[in-house]
Nucleic acid binder design. Structure first.
Length: 541
RNA sequence: GCCCCGUUGGUCUAUUGGUAAGGAUUGCAGGCUUUCAAUCUGCAGAUGAGGGUUCGAUUCCCUCACGGGGUACCA
């Protein structure tokens, strides 16, 4: 009755897989959105198909261009390239199915609405919101499910004229089936059933002629030949009305796949950009944010919740995460290959991805695990790449020149080698700012100075003596310095701890850092001498 | 209220009608160590509840609880 139990599927007739992501121009790229986009992208790439971006700006007041830029930027940074859409593919146009802004496609939607009315699948409805509300409340009071009486439905010109004479305005509503069942075969969830009787006569066009999302979405998906609609699960209950629209319009139905949403750290609530304050109470989330803050501060970045927020992709770019690490982490948030393997390059993701292995339940965003992926990916990078990633951070922080002096890269590389996996994101290079600070401007952390140089009785004397030793170490390398210090310790009959901490604080101003001998070597003899001298003269006020 | 989706250690997950329920991440304790990090060793930690079906259920079915989504002239 009414709607076909078996849906004619578009995919069977189309050679090429086409998926899409339809961001609203909100000014930021949400991490959950990235995952949805990633799965769309992976699916398209895996099947040698196409991935497109369509801007969902149907109800839209703000400046679209401006609000879209951070989103496109995020995609570019992550390497999720789109075959069609705004600013797609090099010199040519945006693609053959444009425009890719829904605000520029309204005639299409209006024509579709017209067609639905003409076909008897939709009708003009002259009910006022109050009248509708009254019906809803009545249904609720009697404990029944609300079904619109269609009292102000106008299907003939006479009815239209009559209602208009009353001064009423009409919206267009779907004339939904009131019996039967829709059996939907979701690629992730399997068979899902909906009773048509539960569906409402949804509005698809407003009185002012503008059309609503569901209509627009279905029309565009068809016009752009989308074969697989892969989207967040909150759209699952909306699917029946979209199927109804599509079928009524004579379209074939795309495949649907509904992904679980990404949840807050430590809970099953949906992750939202607006709840930063709440997430900051989560220890792990707070740690991630703090890590970012410390980098941003040294870069002189603004850290407003609108942009500098671990729920938003910009955050990761700004503090120096690797796109591949984020993608790898996000991939595992709801998808697994076999429960064992977790590391995937982007190419391997494409190779192995399948919708069948997408999980059904929401997955919490776990900052610690993201960090673990990032750390692993970053430490696996070769030195040249790491250096190239870190240099811009030093430039932005004003620690080195732009363009960098010729000895900068080797120095950064030496620091990275010595620091090992202490540098987890590119921005962590700023922990070693002391290597780029002029000797006479090196800040001495008072607490460290007090504990390691000022307070121990013999520290100053030992440091002075060791400085003399330092003058003669040749070559001035970590291994020679190591020998020299150990010889010194033996001669002075002291424990290594009595000198080494003072030495570190003296030359870096800090209590923590990587190996002291590497530190000395990278600094060079001259700087070491100058800094030690300065530390010896320093006193606490 | 009604409809839909979901529920394995803190978190991400694997597997199976018969498992010591596996991996990852995290946590804790200890070792190493010039600080920090890393590393090594050890430890801890899960099938939401109740009913069925079955010789046997984490797995299949039902009910409940909990979480989420939808029920908009939002997307």
């Amino acid at each position: 009755m009414g709607f076909l139990p078996t849906l004619p599927l578009l995919v069977e007739h189309t050679m090429r897989v086409r998926t899409r992501f339809a961001p609203s121009p909100t000014g930021y790229l949400h991490i959950g959105g990235v995952r949805t986009a990633l799965f769309n992208w992976l699916f398209a790439r895996k099947h040698d198909g196409q991935f497109l971006l369509r801007v969902d700006d149907t109800d839209q007041q703000r400046n679209v261009e401006e609000a879209l830029e951070p989103i496109l930027n995020g995609f570019r940074w992550l390497g999720l390239d789109w075959d069609e859409g705004p600013q797609a593919g090099g010199a040519g146009g945006d693609g053959d199915y444009g425009p890719y802004f829904q605000s520029q496609r309204s005639e299409l939607y209006e024509a579709a609405a017209e067609q639905l009315v003409a076909g008897g699948f939709a009708y003009r409805d002259f009910a006022t919101t109050e009248e509708l509300q009254a019906e809803r409340e009545a249904a609720q009071a009697s404990g029944e499910a609300f079904t619109y009486s269609r009292r102000w439905m106008a299907e003939s010109p006479e009815q239209v004229a009559k209602f208009e004479a009353e001064g009423r305005a009409a919206v267009v509503r779907l004339k939904m089936p009131r019996e039967g069942t829709l059996v939907l075969n979701d690629l992730i969830r399997g068979e899902v059933r909906f009773d048509w009787a539960r569906e409402q006569d949804h509005v698809i066009q407003r009185a002012d002629g503008s059309c609503l999302y569901h209509l627009a979405s279905v029309v565009d998906d068809r016009a752009m030949e989308i074969t697989h609609v892969i989207r967040a699960e909150e759209h699952l209950p909306n699917t029946p009305r979209q199927v109804f629209i599509a079928q009524s319009l004579g379209y074939e139905i795309p495949e649907y796949a509904h992904l679980p949403y990404v949840a807050e750290p430590g809970s099953k609530n949906k992750l939202s950009k607006r709840k930063l304050d709440k997430y900051l109470k989560n220890r792990d989330f707070a740690a991630l944010k703090k890590h970012g803050d410390s980098i941003a501060e040294r870069l002189g970045l603004e850290t407003s919740a609108d942009t500098f927020n671990p729920v938003i992709v910009d955050f990761y770019e700004q503090v120096g995460f690797l796109p591949s690490a984020i993608l790898n982490y996000l991939l595992l948030l709801g998808w697994s290959l076999d429960g064992e393997r977790e590391e995937f390059t982007v190419d391997e993701m494409v190779e192995h991805f399948s919708l069948e292995r997408v999980n059904h339940s929401p997955a919490s965003f776990d900052p610690q695990k993201l960090m673990a992926f990032q750390e692993r990916a970053f430490t696996q990078l070769d030195l040249k790449k790491k250096t190239a990633l870190c240099v811009p951070f030093l430039q932005t922080a004003g620690l080195i020149d732009t363009p960098p002096a010729c000895d900068t890269a080797p120095r950064v590389s030496a620091i990275l080698t010595a620091a090992g996996d202490r540098v987890k994101v590119a921005g962590d290079i700023l922990d070693y700012n002391d290597f780029f600070t002029p000797n006479e401007q090196l800040p001495l952390e008072e607490k460290a100075f007090q504990k390691r140089i000022n307070k121990p009785e013999d520290a100053r004397e030992l440091l002075r003596k060791f400085a003399d030793t330092l003058k003669t170490v040749e070559p001035f390398t970590a291994s020679e310095l190591d020998k020299a210090l150990h010889g010194f310790v033996e001669r002075e009959q002291i424990k290594i701890g009595q000198i080494i901490h003072a030495l570190r604080v003296g030359v870096t101003g800090k209590a923590v850092g990587f190996g002291v001998f590497e530190t000395l070597e990278i600094l060079g003899r001259e700087s070491c001498m100058a800094r030690i001298q300065r530390a010896l003269e320093h006193s606490i006020a």
